[in-house]
């Protein structure tokens, strides 16, 4: 039985179809989950895709964290279920307290859509578990508020526990410690600003997002087996 991944759609989300297609390329059966859902039955993993949930009003993710689906996403995560937040999804996860830190406006105060070189700096997460540390990947970023910040103590914790899973080779947005993606203490909740689904097909110029998405699907299969 194939792995079933739910892709959460808030009003204003716009990467749901892209993410769904890339997950299917990675071997999953993906379905869209409307933000008012309060049950996640039969899902092996949940992805919060990119976009502008609730218009990014107030600040990115600040309203989305109150959508009904977030309660069940939190319980799913607490139970060890793999949860991935991409871009706006990462912002939502930090606002919801499922990941530490916050994402603030880019250095330079401009939107940035460009390819970014990333380095896998920890394999201790559901997103990077199949990728060797030190591997370089080219995956586009597409954000206005992508500069990761956290306090010194959190940063030390993240570093010590090898929870910074992806770093920029050339920092495009001013993120502290070049952080592009982090995970929670258990490694089952991951957020990253780059869009792996945009590097999922040779026609798009890069397939470097696929090892990450395949790792997520495989991790979800483990949950499934359990």
């Amino acid at each position: 039985m194939s792995v079933r991944v739910g892709v959460v759609v808030f009003p204003g989300t716009n990467c749901e179809h892209d993410t769904l297609a890339a997950l299917e390329r990675a071997g999953a059966t993906a379905t869209l989950v409307w933000h008012s859902e309060e049950r996640l039955e039969g899902l092996d993993a949940v992805v919060l895709p990119g976009g502008f949930a609730h218009g990014d009003y107030l600040r990115p993710g600040a309203l989305a964290r109150f959508s009904p689906v977030m309660g069940v996403v939190a319980r799913f995560a607490a139970a060890g279920g793999p949860v991935l937040g991409i871009c706006n999804g990462f912002q939502v996860l930090t606002e919801a307290g499922l990941l530490p830190g916050a994402l603030v406006k880019n250095r330079g105060l401009r939107f940035l859509c460009a390819p970014a070189r990333l380095r896998v700096t920890s394999a201790r997460s559901v997103l990077t578990c199949d990728v060797e540390e030190g591997t370089e990947l080219e995956i586009p970023v597409n954000h206005f508020s992508g500069s990761y910040v956290c306090d010194a103590r959190t940063l030390a914790e993240l570093r010590d526990a090898e929870r910074v899973v992806l770093r920029y080779v050339e920092n495009p947005n001013g993120s502290i410690d070049d952080i592009a993606g982090v995970t929670n203490a258990q490694g089952n909740v991951v957020g990253l600003m780059p869009h792996p689904e945009r590097a999922s097909h040779a026609l798009l110029g890069s397939t470097d997002g696929m090892p990450l998405l395949r790792a997520l699907v495989r991790a979800a299969a483990g949950v499934h087996a359990a």
Partner: peptide, 11 residues
């Protein structure tokens, strides 16, 4: 200019 535009959505 174009780095400020999302030019990749929909893959």
């Amino acid at each position: 200019i174009y780095r400020q535009y999302d030019h990749q959505l929909f893959l």
